[in-house]
Nucleic acid binder design. Sequence first.
DNA 1: ACCTGAACACCGTTCAAGT
DNA 2: ACCTGAACACCGTTCAAGT
Lengths: 214, 214
Amino acid sequence: MGPVATDERTAYHHGDLRGALLDAALQLIESEGLAGLSLRAVARKVGVSHAAPYHHFADRTALLAAVAEEGFQALHGAMLARTAGVADPRQRLRETGIGYVRFALEHPAHFRVMFSPEFRERSPHPGLQAAAAAAYGLLEEAIVECQRRGYARPGDADAMVRAAWALVHGIATLLLDGHLEREEGLRAGEEQVLAATALLWEGLKSRPAPSDPV
Amino acid sequence: MGPVATDERTAYHHGDLRGALLDAALQLIESEGLAGLSLRAVARKVGVSHAAPYHHFADRTALLAAVAEEGFQALHGAMLARTAGVADPRQRLRETGIGYVRFALEHPAHFRVMFSPEFRERSPHPGLQAAAAAAYGLLEEAIVECQRRGYARPGDADAMVRAAWALVHGIATLLLDGHLEREEGLRAGEEQVLAATALLWEGLKSRPAPSDPV
DNA sequence: ACCTGAACACCGTTCAAGT
DNA sequence: ACCTGAACACCGTTCAAGT
């Protein structure tokens, strides 16, 4: 082998310790939970001294912020991929919601870090903030497009976006924490979203419901 | 003072260390976050040795399980109180949802422990499990009653309960973690719930929506 | 530029010993 | 019955020193 294609273990140490630490952290969160994640264990897993991570991340929180940012980028990509080539904005909205819940179920470690109370404030982490905003924007776009084409009632789009987001976020967190039945592996998330959004959808529809004030 | 009305500090040590530890834990979670809670700090706050808590709780998790159980009982009580004397099941449903979100905002420490991933499995903590089931039951009752009186469409009540729960849970967690605007202090939670449930409500209504399949 | 090893102030948990 | 103090194996973080 030439000087480029070195042994992976060696390349790790010199090449991309930062990336290796992120990967190791993710795996450890998956197996031990976020609360059980220690920086020392991450270093150990990568085969480096316990002080080495500090050359790449200011502290434990900075490592986690990088994980969270990575997560929002992946979420954004996953939701985009699901709507690629889908023209009907109602279906785009549905696919965005399904993508959100599926991402949470398929990447639980990422999802938990992304919404950890540690990042209540995202402003100290601009990359994280931007990635989160981009993902949220997809939901917004889908709903505004539904309004534009007359599929959703006009008016307060923000309230609709918040309701839709809260719904899928609630489903995702409850499924993830085992408080909603997950009937058939990952597919169950989809059914949950379909059933719930079908109900919510009636409220979003453009035809004002016949009066039955309550 | 007689032998009964002793100094509080003294009474603490002999009387209700268990209760004092629970209170102290709650306060520390509020100020430091759940991740920052240490059993040693709890003991320190109560003025007792770091080993003393182990005479009342098997470990850190057992202490937190007791906090969570307490929280579900309080949630149950808060939702009950809001529906006391309310006859219309639609309004009972709305008040139950508002009670849920308000509880989360008013008792953030409790709420976070109640839904901590640490208690993904509640079966090892029977008291916690029972308290959680009782609280969930209130939502269920309200929806079933709406169906019984013809206010909600008949059929899969469970799907409706799950959708309603996911919605209020999503609102509660997003507000709590600062990802939804909290316009005017605690009241904002109510407005959020009202706007979102108004949308969801259209889907729950008994009158099947005119076809517009999507 | 990147990594290490020792050091410090913390943890959770156990256990013999005290009252 | 209830609490303490010492002990052990962990942490996060810092920093001088090595290559």
